[in-house]
């Protein structure tokens, strides 16, 4: 096969490309046997990751996150709302994940992408942590909704988080979560003041109004930040951070979400031909722990980079 002597001439180059298209699984398996992936990565290595904070000037908080070619733009808009009767001192976060046709050939205009509502739901589950306790409403998520309260029972923040997928090249949830976390850490809560009718209005910073309601609370407190890693299971191999091509060939993905206090937030494996055994689950969790440290450093660097400016 032209694959093994791909040392130079054009004809063998062509053959490799044809082999890749015709027998993708075998093409990958021959790479995996050498413990390398076609893009030159080791099996457990994630792609290059960058975060750019403040990518959207008109939003209150925004970030552009990139892992490999997968690109997501997250932006947060804050609005004052009247809190719900059952939770008078809590704000609200609405998360929406968009996959416009620009992101992938699989998405057609007019027909919503299949993956979009699923990622959107997973994101809200991870960020808002929908577990209500009967007795104690103890809180274990990233954002305490009480921090979004302005005046108990009267006014609270409603945060609209919109994430746009610009390029979908695998591991969508990982990048979406990273961009969401980055946007929240970039978030500057606008200043509001009470007007004569007792309504809260957003004021611009220049004309220093007298009764500013939230002078100190300009930054949102983030505790226990979640980070995730998607892995592919195939035979005895575990491939971290798959590209779209890898995801379509191997089909079995496991997404592990850990937070900064080493709690398991989610272990998500929706079916797939390969079964996950205890040992591979342990390996995936170990890979995610490593990745969490990497991502945390990248996030911290981009935040401190912002502060210098």
């Amino acid at each position: 096969m032209g694959y093994s002597n791909a040392s130079g001439d054009l004809s063998s180059e062509m053959e490799v490309d044809a082999f890749r298209r015709l027998f993708p699984l075998r093409f990958y398996e021959r790479h995996l046997a050498e413990l390398i992936r076609p893009d030159g990565r080791a099996l457990g290595k994630a792609r290059d990751t960058t975060i750019a904070l403040g990518a959207v000037a008109s939003a209150d908080g925004s970030a552009l996150a990139k892992i490999g070619l997968t690109t997501m733009l997250a932006a947060i808009k804050m609005e004052v709302m009247t809190p719900l009767k059952e939770s008078p001192d809590e704000g609200c976060i609405v998360i929406e994940f968009h996959m416009p046709p620009i992101c992938s050939p699989l998405v057609r205009p007019g027909r919503p992408a299949e993956a979009a509502p699923v990622v959107s739901k997973q994101l809200s589950d991870t960020i808002l942590r929908h577990v209500k306790h009967f007795s104690v409403r103890s809180f274990s998520g990233m954002i305490d909704l009480k921090d979004l309260s302005l005046v108990s029972g009267k006014a609270a923040w409603m945060a609209y988080l919109d994430i746009y997928c610009l390029d979908a090249d695998g591991s969508l949830f990982d990048v979406a979560l990273l961009s969401a976390v980055a946007a929240f850490s970039h978030l500057q809560i606008p200043v509001v003041s009470m007007n004569d009718e007792g309504k809260l209005i957003v004021v611009s910073e220049e004309n220093g109004e007298k009764d500013v309601v939230n002078k100190e609370k300009r930054k949102l407190r983030l505790n226990r930040i979640p980070f995730s890693l998607t892995c592919i299971l195939h035979k005895k191999y575990i491939l971290a951070d798959p590209t779209a091509e890898e995801e379509s060939i191997f089909e079995t993905v496991v997404t592990v979400v850990l937070d900064t206090s080493d709690q398991l937030v989610s272990l998500y494996k929706p079916g797939g031909p390969a079964l996950a055994f205890t040992s591979s689950v342990q390996d995936c969790i170990a890979l995610t722990k490593q990745r969490l440290k990497e991502l945390q450093t990248i996030l911290d660097e981009s935040i401190s980079g912002m502060e210098v400016d």
Partner: peptide
Amino acid sequence: SGIITSVTQGAMAV
């Protein structure tokens, strides 16, 4: 003992 599907909700220790 292999897992076909796993979905979790809420945080827990590993």
